[in-house]
């Protein structure tokens, strides 16, 4: 089976610093694929390259065999890749509902004229709004966000905001979802729930998940495969058990044993 997402020799430099150096990996459809590494290893940079926010210096990104390397972020979203951000990027003065409705943006058609002139329930704009509202309610049920539905995002606690952001990405109905540290700032209970949510996203919704995460317990529990990075270089890739014992990974995280003279 062809991989759904294929990254080839991805390289990007900022100034003189090489943030990524010839990183390649493949993600199978329906996998939960995690990227780990110490701070500054280039995890979020990979996400930014995939979602079109950064243009890589060289290398290619393929989605289902199609080259998406130099597309704009909104074009990448239309291809079916949704993402969340490390430091929550929600529309804070909109309600949870509207945040999720924005996730439906690419599936809706109402333009300026139709949007400004609909007057009755059966008009096209209203019908579309109602139809997509139904989809959004499914996401709300899926993540159990009912209590937050009509609240402004600014008033929500941090953990809930993280979930709203996840919900917004799910509302887009993506084929691949990029989660950038979804568990940061969550307590143990929320982390537990999140773990089940991530598995459900894959199992029930059939979405391929790419995960950047620092919580090793979560990573080892949910991941099918793991990519380990350090200083923009790929140091290991494989099953969770392999990564756990990999000497390069241990070195990156724990440091080397030094002989004391």
């Amino acid at each position: 089976m062809d991989p759904i997402l294929k990254i080839e020799n991805l390289t990007i430099s900022f100034g003189g610093i090489r943030a990524l150096n010839k990183v390649s990996f493949e993600v199978e459809k329906g996998a939960i694929y995690s990227i780990i590494g110490p701070n500054g290893a280039g995890k979020t940079t990979i996400f930014n390259c995939i979602s079109g926010i950064y243009q890589p210096s060289s290398g290619k990104i393929f989605l289902k065999g199609e080259d998406i390397t130099y597309l704009r972020p909104d074009q990448v979203a239309k291809k079916g890749i949704a993402r969340t951000f490390q430091n929550i990027e929600l529309f804070s003065h909109m309600s949870t509902m509207d945040n999720l409705m924005l996730g439906r943006h690419i599936h809706m058609k109402t333009g300026i004229w139709r949007g400004a002139t609909f007057i009755y329930k059966g008009s096209k704009a209203a019908r579309e709004e109602i139809e997509h509202r139904g989809k959004v309610e499914e996401v709300i049920d899926f993540l159990e966000l009912q209590a937050a539905r009509n609240q402004f995002v600014v008033n929500l606690p941090y953990g809930t905001r993280k979930l709203v952001e996840l919900g917004r990405a799910l509302a887009l109905d993506p084929e691949v979802i990029l989660l950038d540290e979804p568990s940061a700032g969550m307590n143990m209970e929320e982390k537990g729930d999140l773990m089940f949510s991530i598995q459900d996203i894959r199992d029930d919704l059939g979405i391929t998940v790419l995960l950047v995460e620092h919580d090793m317990n979560l990573i080892m529990d949910v991941s099918d495969r793991i990519l380990a990075l350090n200083f923009g270089e790929k140091i290991a890739e494989g099953l969770p058990e392999e990564i756990q014992k990999h000497p390069e990974v241990l070195k990156a995280y724990l440091g080397e044993e030094e002989k004391v003279a």
Binding site: A77, R83, F85, E89, L90, L102, G103
Partner: peptide, 9 residues
Amino acid sequence: IAAEAMGVN
């Protein structure tokens, strides 16, 4: 940035 990542041109 989030609007763009959600497909808003």
